[in-house]
Amino acid sequence: MARTRIIVNGDGIESIVRFDKHQIAQHWLLIISEMMLLLTGLPQKFATWAASQWWINVLGGMENVRIVHRIGAYLMIALCVYHVIYLLYSILVLKRPFPKKMLPTRQDIVGFFQEMMYLVGWRKEEPKWDRFNWKEKFEYWSIAWGGPIMILSGFILMFPVFFTNMLPGWIVPTALVAHSWEAIIALIWIFVVHFFFVHFGPGVFPLNKSIFTGKVPVKLYKHEHPLEYERLIAQQKEEEGNDSGHTEDTLYREGEEEEDSLYSKK
Protein backbone atom coordinates (compact mmCIF):
# COMPACT_ATOMS: atom_id res chain seq x y z
CA MET A 1 0.00 0.00 0.00
CA ALA A 2 1.70 3.04 -1.21
CA ARG A 3 -0.36 5.39 0.86
CA THR A 4 1.17 4.49 4.19
CA ARG A 5 4.30 6.46 4.85
CA ILE A 6 6.68 7.22 7.66
CA ILE A 7 6.65 10.75 8.96
CA VAL A 8 8.35 12.49 11.82
CA ASN A 9 6.22 14.35 14.33
CA GLY A 10 7.09 17.70 15.80
CA ASP A 11 8.15 16.00 19.01
CA GLY A 12 10.63 13.85 17.14
CA ILE A 13 8.69 10.59 17.43
CA GLU A 14 8.64 8.65 14.21
CA SER A 15 5.14 7.66 13.20
CA ILE A 16 3.52 5.83 10.37
CA VAL A 17 0.36 7.21 8.82
CA ARG A 18 -2.27 4.50 9.12
CA PHE A 19 -5.62 6.27 8.67
CA ASP A 20 -6.66 9.07 6.36
CA LYS A 21 -8.95 11.89 7.42
CA HIS A 22 -12.06 10.13 6.13
CA GLN A 23 -11.34 7.08 8.23
CA ILE A 24 -10.75 9.28 11.27
CA ALA A 25 -14.04 11.09 10.65
CA GLN A 26 -15.84 7.77 10.25
CA HIS A 27 -14.51 6.48 13.54
CA TRP A 28 -15.60 9.69 15.30
CA LEU A 29 -19.06 9.35 13.81
CA LEU A 30 -19.17 5.75 14.94
CA ILE A 31 -18.20 6.69 18.51
CA ILE A 32 -20.71 9.52 18.73
CA SER A 33 -23.64 7.65 17.21
CA GLU A 34 -22.89 4.46 19.12
CA MET A 35 -22.68 6.27 22.44
CA MET A 36 -25.92 8.14 21.74
CA LEU A 37 -27.63 4.86 20.90
CA LEU A 38 -26.27 2.94 23.86
CA LEU A 39 -27.01 5.68 26.38
CA THR A 40 -30.59 5.95 25.21
CA GLY A 41 -31.16 2.31 24.23
CA LEU A 42 -29.84 0.45 27.26
CA PRO A 43 -32.19 2.13 29.77
CA GLN A 44 -35.05 1.09 27.50
CA LYS A 45 -33.89 -2.52 27.50
CA PHE A 46 -33.39 -2.54 31.26
CA ALA A 47 -36.42 -0.41 32.07
CA THR A 48 -36.96 -1.80 35.56
CA TRP A 49 -33.52 -0.77 36.83
CA ALA A 50 -33.48 2.22 39.13
CA ALA A 51 -30.41 3.50 37.29
CA SER A 52 -32.30 3.44 33.98
CA GLN A 53 -35.18 5.39 35.45
CA TRP A 54 -32.82 7.90 37.01
CA TRP A 55 -30.91 8.35 33.77
CA ILE A 56 -34.03 8.78 31.66
CA ASN A 57 -35.22 11.36 34.13
CA VAL A 58 -31.89 13.18 33.74
CA LEU A 59 -32.38 13.20 29.97
CA GLY A 60 -35.78 14.78 30.42
CA GLY A 61 -38.13 11.86 30.07
CA MET A 62 -38.93 9.01 27.76
CA GLU A 63 -40.04 11.13 24.82
CA ASN A 64 -36.71 12.96 24.70
CA VAL A 65 -34.85 9.68 24.93
CA ARG A 66 -36.72 8.29 21.96
CA ILE A 67 -35.86 11.37 19.91
CA VAL A 68 -32.17 11.19 20.82
CA HIS A 69 -32.13 7.48 19.98
CA ARG A 70 -33.50 8.22 16.54
CA ILE A 71 -31.01 11.03 15.93
CA GLY A 72 -28.23 8.61 16.89
CA ALA A 73 -29.68 6.02 14.52
CA TYR A 74 -29.83 8.40 11.58
CA LEU A 75 -26.28 9.49 12.35
CA MET A 76 -25.11 5.89 12.23
CA ILE A 77 -26.98 5.29 8.98
CA ALA A 78 -25.31 8.42 7.58
CA LEU A 79 -21.98 6.98 8.65
CA CYS A 80 -22.68 3.71 6.83
CA VAL A 81 -23.62 5.60 3.69
CA TYR A 82 -20.50 7.77 4.06
CA HIS A 83 -18.33 4.66 4.36
CA VAL A 84 -19.81 2.99 1.30
CA ILE A 85 -19.46 6.17 -0.77
CA TYR A 86 -15.90 6.60 0.49
CA LEU A 87 -15.08 3.03 -0.53
CA LEU A 88 -16.67 3.30 -3.95
CA TYR A 89 -15.13 6.71 -4.59
CA SER A 90 -11.63 5.62 -3.70
CA ILE A 91 -11.89 2.45 -5.76
CA LEU A 92 -13.82 3.64 -8.80
CA VAL A 93 -12.84 7.29 -9.10
CA LEU A 94 -9.42 7.46 -7.51
CA LYS A 95 -8.58 4.01 -8.90
CA ARG A 96 -7.07 2.95 -5.64
CA PRO A 97 -6.56 -0.79 -5.29
CA PHE A 98 -9.50 -2.66 -3.81
CA PRO A 99 -8.79 -2.88 -0.05
CA LYS A 100 -8.43 -6.64 -0.17
CA LYS A 101 -6.35 -6.58 3.01
CA MET A 102 -9.62 -6.24 4.93
CA LEU A 103 -10.94 -9.53 3.53
CA PRO A 104 -10.64 -12.54 5.83
CA THR A 105 -7.99 -15.01 4.71
CA ARG A 106 -6.67 -18.37 5.77
CA GLN A 107 -3.84 -16.53 7.46
CA ASP A 108 -6.33 -15.00 9.91
CA ILE A 109 -7.42 -18.43 11.11
CA VAL A 110 -3.82 -19.57 11.43
CA GLY A 111 -2.94 -16.33 13.21
CA PHE A 112 -5.92 -16.69 15.51
CA PHE A 113 -4.77 -20.12 16.65
CA GLN A 114 -1.18 -18.94 16.95
CA GLU A 115 -2.35 -16.08 19.14
CA MET A 116 -4.37 -18.45 21.32
CA MET A 117 -1.31 -20.68 21.65
CA TYR A 118 0.72 -17.63 22.63
CA LEU A 119 -1.86 -16.51 25.18
CA VAL A 120 -1.99 -19.90 26.90
CA GLY A 121 1.78 -20.11 26.83
CA TRP A 122 2.37 -22.82 24.23
CA ARG A 123 4.10 -20.44 21.90
CA LYS A 124 6.84 -17.95 22.63
CA GLU A 125 5.93 -15.31 20.07
CA GLU A 126 2.82 -13.58 18.94
CA PRO A 127 1.79 -14.16 15.35
CA LYS A 128 3.00 -11.59 12.83
CA TRP A 129 0.18 -9.58 11.31
CA ASP A 130 -0.04 -7.67 8.09
CA ARG A 131 -2.17 -4.51 7.84
CA PHE A 132 -5.10 -5.89 9.87
CA ASN A 133 -5.15 -8.54 12.57
CA TRP A 134 -8.07 -10.90 13.04
CA LYS A 135 -9.67 -8.72 15.72
CA GLU A 136 -9.62 -5.65 13.50
CA LYS A 137 -11.16 -7.60 10.64
CA PHE A 138 -13.74 -9.15 12.93
CA GLU A 139 -14.77 -5.75 14.27
CA TYR A 140 -15.02 -4.28 10.79
CA TRP A 141 -17.16 -7.13 9.48
CA SER A 142 -19.24 -7.13 12.66
CA ILE A 143 -20.54 -3.74 11.64
CA ALA A 144 -21.14 -5.07 8.16
CA TRP A 145 -23.54 -7.76 9.43
CA GLY A 146 -24.63 -6.12 12.67
CA GLY A 147 -25.41 -2.76 11.09
CA PRO A 148 -28.06 -4.05 8.69
CA ILE A 149 -29.66 -6.08 11.50
CA MET A 150 -29.85 -3.01 13.72
CA ILE A 151 -31.02 -0.67 10.98
CA LEU A 152 -33.69 -3.00 9.64
CA SER A 153 -35.04 -4.07 13.02
CA GLY A 154 -34.88 -0.47 14.22
CA PHE A 155 -37.00 0.71 11.32
CA ILE A 156 -39.49 -2.10 11.96
CA LEU A 157 -39.80 -0.93 15.56
CA MET A 158 -40.05 2.69 14.45
CA PHE A 159 -42.77 2.07 11.85
CA PRO A 160 -44.57 -1.09 13.00
CA VAL A 161 -47.82 -0.21 11.24
CA PHE A 162 -46.09 0.36 7.91
CA PHE A 163 -44.16 -2.91 8.09
CA THR A 164 -47.05 -5.07 9.28
CA ASN A 165 -49.10 -3.88 6.32
CA MET A 166 -46.63 -5.78 4.15
CA LEU A 167 -45.12 -8.38 6.45
CA PRO A 168 -46.57 -10.78 9.03
CA GLY A 169 -47.20 -9.49 12.55
CA TRP A 170 -44.51 -11.60 14.24
CA ILE A 171 -41.93 -9.41 12.54
CA VAL A 172 -42.35 -6.80 15.31
CA PRO A 173 -41.54 -8.97 18.37
CA THR A 174 -38.78 -10.61 16.31
CA ALA A 175 -37.29 -7.23 15.45
CA LEU A 176 -37.40 -6.28 19.12
CA VAL A 177 -35.42 -9.29 20.33
CA ALA A 178 -32.95 -9.02 17.45
CA HIS A 179 -32.46 -5.28 18.00
CA SER A 180 -31.88 -5.42 21.72
CA TRP A 181 -29.69 -8.53 21.83
CA GLU A 182 -27.55 -7.56 18.86
CA ALA A 183 -26.85 -4.32 20.70
CA ILE A 184 -25.69 -6.28 23.74
CA ILE A 185 -23.34 -8.33 21.58
CA ALA A 186 -21.81 -5.16 20.13
CA LEU A 187 -21.58 -3.64 23.60
CA ILE A 188 -19.74 -6.64 25.02
CA TRP A 189 -17.24 -6.79 22.19
CA ILE A 190 -16.49 -3.06 22.14
CA PHE A 191 -16.22 -2.59 25.87
CA VAL A 192 -14.31 -5.77 26.57
CA VAL A 193 -12.19 -6.86 23.59
CA HIS A 194 -11.83 -3.64 21.62
CA PHE A 195 -11.04 -1.48 24.65
CA PHE A 196 -8.64 -3.98 26.16
CA PHE A 197 -6.59 -4.84 23.11
CA VAL A 198 -6.65 -1.41 21.49
CA HIS A 199 -6.33 0.86 24.51
CA PHE A 200 -5.17 -1.10 27.53
CA GLY A 201 -2.63 -3.39 25.91
CA PRO A 202 1.12 -3.11 26.50
CA GLY A 203 2.62 -0.07 24.81
CA VAL A 204 -0.65 1.78 24.34
CA PHE A 205 -2.22 2.12 27.79
CA PRO A 206 -4.17 4.26 28.65
CA LEU A 207 -5.32 5.50 25.24
CA ASN A 208 -4.34 4.63 21.72
CA LYS A 209 -4.64 7.89 19.86
CA SER A 210 -3.90 6.55 16.39
CA ILE A 211 -7.53 6.51 15.19
CA PHE A 212 -7.82 10.17 16.20
CA THR A 213 -4.52 11.40 14.79
CA GLY A 214 -4.19 8.88 11.98
CA LYS A 215 -0.63 8.12 13.01
CA VAL A 216 0.88 5.16 14.84
CA PRO A 217 4.30 5.37 16.50
CA VAL A 218 6.84 3.29 14.57
CA LYS A 219 7.70 1.20 17.61
CA LEU A 220 4.07 0.22 18.07
CA TYR A 221 3.54 -0.38 14.38
CA LYS A 222 6.56 -2.66 14.27
CA HIS A 223 5.05 -4.66 17.07
CA GLU A 224 1.41 -4.76 15.96
CA HIS A 225 1.76 -5.06 12.21
CA PRO A 226 5.31 -6.37 11.63
CA LEU A 227 4.71 -7.76 8.13
CA GLU A 228 3.31 -4.50 6.86
CA TYR A 229 6.00 -2.54 8.64
CA GLU A 230 8.77 -4.49 6.95
CA ARG A 231 7.17 -4.02 3.57
CA LEU A 232 6.77 -0.31 4.22
CA ILE A 233 10.39 0.11 5.15
CA ALA A 234 11.47 -1.73 2.05
CA GLN A 235 9.16 0.41 -0.02
CA GLN A 236 10.36 3.59 1.61
CA LYS A 237 13.97 2.73 0.87
CA GLU A 238 13.15 1.92 -2.70
CA GLU A 239 11.33 5.20 -3.14
CA GLU A 240 14.15 7.17 -1.61
CA GLY A 241 16.48 5.38 -3.99
CA ASN A 242 14.33 6.32 -6.96
CA ASP A 243 13.88 9.78 -5.48
CA SER A 244 10.36 9.79 -6.80
CA GLY A 245 8.54 9.97 -3.45
CA HIS A 246 5.29 10.40 -5.26
CA THR A 247 2.97 7.62 -6.11
CA GLU A 248 -0.09 7.37 -8.28
CA ASP A 249 -2.19 7.96 -5.18
CA THR A 250 -3.15 11.60 -5.66
CA LEU A 251 -5.81 12.08 -2.97
CA TYR A 252 -3.71 10.76 -0.22
CA ARG A 253 -0.57 12.56 -1.29
CA GLU A 254 -2.39 15.89 -1.08
CA GLY A 255 -3.55 15.17 2.43
CA GLU A 256 -0.10 14.09 3.40
CA GLU A 257 1.49 17.24 2.10
CA GLU A 258 -0.89 19.27 4.20
CA GLU A 259 0.16 17.33 7.22
CA ASP A 260 3.83 17.69 6.40
CA SER A 261 3.52 21.43 6.12
CA LEU A 262 1.65 21.50 9.41
CA TYR A 263 4.50 19.81 11.17
CA SER A 264 7.16 21.95 9.55
CA LYS A 265 5.36 25.05 10.82
CA LYS A 266 5.72 23.75 14.34
Binding site: N165, W170, P173
Partner: peptide
Protein backbone atom coordinates in the same frame (compact mmCIF):
# COMPACT_ATOMS: atom_id res chain seq x y z
CA UNK B 1 -54.45 -3.84 10.74
CA UNK B 2 -54.94 -7.39 11.92
CA UNK B 3 -51.36 -8.33 11.07
CA UNK B 4 -50.20 -5.53 13.35
CA UNK B 5 -52.48 -6.80 16.11
CA UNK B 6 -51.27 -10.36 15.65
CA UNK B 7 -47.77 -9.17 16.48
CA UNK B 8 -48.99 -8.53 19.99
CA UNK B 9 -48.37 -11.63 22.00
CA UNK B 10 -51.53 -11.43 24.09
CA UNK B 11 -49.56 -11.33 27.35
CA UNK B 12 -48.14 -14.74 26.51
CA UNK B 13 -44.52 -15.58 27.02
CA UNK B 14 -42.84 -15.98 23.63
CA UNK B 15 -42.71 -19.68 23.01
CA UNK B 16 -42.21 -22.08 20.17
CA UNK B 17 -45.97 -22.30 19.71
CA UNK B 18 -47.01 -18.62 20.00
CA UNK B 19 -44.47 -16.73 17.90
CA UNK B 20 -41.93 -19.34 16.81
CA UNK B 21 -39.75 -16.97 14.80
CA UNK B 22 -39.36 -14.43 17.59
Amino acid sequence: GEEFASGFLGHKQTSASTVPVA
